[in-house]
Simulated assay, not measured.
Amino acid sequence: MTFTSSRSEFLTIRGLRCHVRHWGRDGAPKIFMLHGWMDVGASFQFVVDALQGDWHVIAPDWRGFGLSQRCGGDTYWFPDYLADLDAILRHYSPDEAVNLLGHSMGGNVVGLYAGARPERIRKLINLEGGGLRSSKPEQAPGRYAKWMDALLEQPELRNYPSQAAVAARLQKTNPRLGDERAAFLAQHWSAQNDAGEWEILGDPAHKQPGPLPYHVEDIMACWSAITAPVLWVEAEQTNMWTWMGGEQEGRAELERRLAHLRDLECKVLADAGHMLHHDQPEELAHLIEAFLAR
């Protein structure tokens, strides 16, 4: 299997060193791709391989993921992702509206951003970034207590004896992932430490529970402010209901949320799970290019 070559760049974004991966020709139309939680920008490799047109794909690693610098604190604050994205877009595309894609957590970020900065978005693609179950006020005391309790412990991520073991771990989570693609992801998802073990390239602090509530109506106010056409893509075998309160409740709530988008196209990818950009990259690339061409 041949993978399209990419190049790395490092920027200082809001005081942190940010790693940005590029594919394609400088000067070609841009697509910005934003990865999900515990993932990296290189995760979009297989979709890039399947694109047929002349594109410049730009995929940063969020702060504390991949090769980007960690925040240095004990908590990651979600609004920082929006401000980081704003700085990245101002650097690479200061004067033109952009094609913006996000997966999972990245989809949540781009949806908020597109409402806050609607004039900056040409087309928006959301891959299963539907959000979380809405918080209730009576949950606040327990949520703050859980956060403070977690701060008393040092979070850790498991290390692996080899890069092959990392690939096997990826395949355990996603059985659809073939050997060559798993091996490719493992080399970007991990790095060898001084002890000779392979560490996951993610700050363990991302595992900590957050103290802030998820106010879904605030999120929907942002979605309602989006003026760009939106492509929503979900997987037929998705597990996003896990963080939306179960499939029955989650499906109804997702439909309610999507109704806030004024110019919406919805697609479902067969034989795919939540990592749909790994499971069906060719079909996803086709949907992306057809949507951007319309």
Rank of each mutant, 00 (worst) to 15 (best):
Pro137Tyr: 03
Gly210Arg: 14
Trp198His: 03
Leu152Ala: 13
Lys172Thr: 13
Trp147Gln: 02
His188Glu: 05
Glu156Thr: 14
Ile226Asn: 00
Gln248Ala: 15
Phe184Lys: 00
Met244Pro: 01
Pro137Glu: 05
Gln187Tyr: 01
Gln208Pro: 00
Ala182Gly: 05
Tyr160Ser: 01
Ser224Trp: 02
Ala252Met: 08
Arg143Gly: 02
Leu177Gln: 09
Glu153Pro: 00
Glu217Gly: 00
Gly250Val: 13
Leu151Ile: 03
Gln208His: 09
Ala225Glu: 05
Ile226Glu: 02
Ser135Gly: 05
Pro213Ala: 07
Glu234Thr: 12
Ser134Lys: 13
Asn193Val: 10
Arg251Ala: 14
Thr227Val: 08
Leu157Ser: 06
Asn159Val: 15
Val166Asn: 01
Thr173Trp: 14
Ala205Ser: 08
Ala168Cys: 06
Val216Tyr: 05
Ala168Asn: 07
Gly142Pro: 05
Arg251Phe: 11
Arg133Cys: 06
Gln237Met: 02
His206Phe: 15
Gln187Ile: 01
Ala164Gly: 12
Ala221Val: 00
Leu152Asp: 11
Glu217Thr: 12
Arg176Gly: 04
Ala205Cys: 13
Trp232Pro: 02
Ala205Gly: 03
Asp149Tyr: 08
Met240Pro: 00
Trp223Asn: 03
His206Ala: 00
Ala183Trp: 04
Ala168Met: 07
Met148Cys: 04
Pro155Ser: 08
Gly210Glu: 07
Trp232Lys: 00
Tyr160Pro: 01
Gly210Leu: 03
